Amino acid sequence: MLICFDIGGTSIKAARATAPQALTPLGRKPTPRDDFAAFVAVLEGFLGETPAPVAISVTGVIDPRSGLATVANIACIDGRNLAGDLQAALGRPVIVANDADCFALAEAHAGAGRGHEVVFGAILGTGVGGGIVAGGRLFRGAGGLAGEWGHGSITATRLSVPPYDLPQFECGCGQRGCVDTVGGARGLEKLHRHIHGAELESTAIISAWTGGDAAAGETLSVYLELVAQPMALAVNIVGPDIIPVGGGLGNSTELVAALDGEVRRRILRKLDRPLVVPAQLTVDAGLIGAASLGFSEGLA
């Protein structure tokens, strides 16, 4: 048995797990952002008397060698050896991975990637992220950054669809032309604003596109070309059997299907089945991913 936590900047969710798919919810509490003792106390409140080990999905990046966490929106754990510090404070084994990796694990163990050898979980949410699972285990990579296809100066500036020429937008990571600048919800909105001079939320753009709106259709044609090219490159490098797509944009089955078609015609491997598919675990993916992490790493 494990006690699993899904830790975000706003709240901490907890569950008891006897398998990755067998969770008993324990509740949710606000995340203490500036007080580590208060942060630990919230976790202890969920543990009770059980001696079970702890598996955590957390926003941010975890370096697998040093164990150091980079968590910009939770100051009290930023820069800590999070697993080590929590293990000492809680008196039990603790394992930690970031939320994108846990999303990929959840889909590999209990979602769209179940039964597949290599799963590349792609997140198209506010921004762009991802994680890689091979043989049921998380591939962490140097620095804990494997699967982060959202960054790097890779987006095209010359397109096959109008407006044909496009600048590489500045990214929060300090580079220009990252997939993160165009591939997430804010990126889609940025593209629509750049092409049409109109302010629309991503959900409205998707809705207009599926309804046949010409302007939204132009925006989506640009979006699909910009995102499909780097995703196809990631497929050729990683060789996934399946790519579950999570995040807000992943909720549009039409968008995911269109992206699948654009990716498959650009990759070396020829498939007669979908490769890019909607994620199946839209609720409690963080907790399921944390449980999957703990069980796949032999913590329980």
Rank of each mutant, 00 (worst) to 15 (best):
G125M: 11
G113I: 02
D78T: 05
D34K: 14
V54W: 03
A52W: 08
G79E: 15
V42H: 02
G60V: 15
V54C: 08
A110S: 14
R114K: 15
A88R: 11
G121W: 01
T50K: 05
D101F: 03
A72D: 05
V58C: 15
N73I: 07
N98C: 11
G60W: 06
F46M: 15
D35T: 07
L47E: 03
A89N: 07
N73P: 05
R92T: 09
G115M: 08
V71T: 11
G111R: 03
A52K: 03
V42N: 06
L82S: 10
A52D: 09
E117C: 12
I62S: 02
A38S: 04
A38N: 01
I56D: 03
E117R: 15
A75K: 11
G113H: 06
L105D: 09
F46G: 04
A110P: 00
C76D: 00
A100Y: 01
N81Q: 11
V40M: 02
H116Q: 15
D78V: 01
N81V: 13
F46Q: 06
D34A: 13
F103V: 09
P64T: 06
V71Q: 04
F36S: 03
I74S: 04
V61P: 01
F36I: 02
S66N: 08
I95A: 13
E49Y: 03
P93G: 14
A83K: 04
F120W: 10
G79Y: 11
T59N: 08
G79N: 10
L105I: 10
N81L: 14
H109C: 11
S57H: 06
T70R: 13
P93Y: 15
L90P: 00
A52C: 05
A38W: 02
C102A: 09
A108L: 07
N81G: 06
E44L: 12
N73K: 08
A75R: 15
P53K: 06
G60F: 14
D63G: 07
A75C: 05
D35P: 07
N81H: 13
G84A: 14
A108P: 01
A100N: 03
H109G: 10
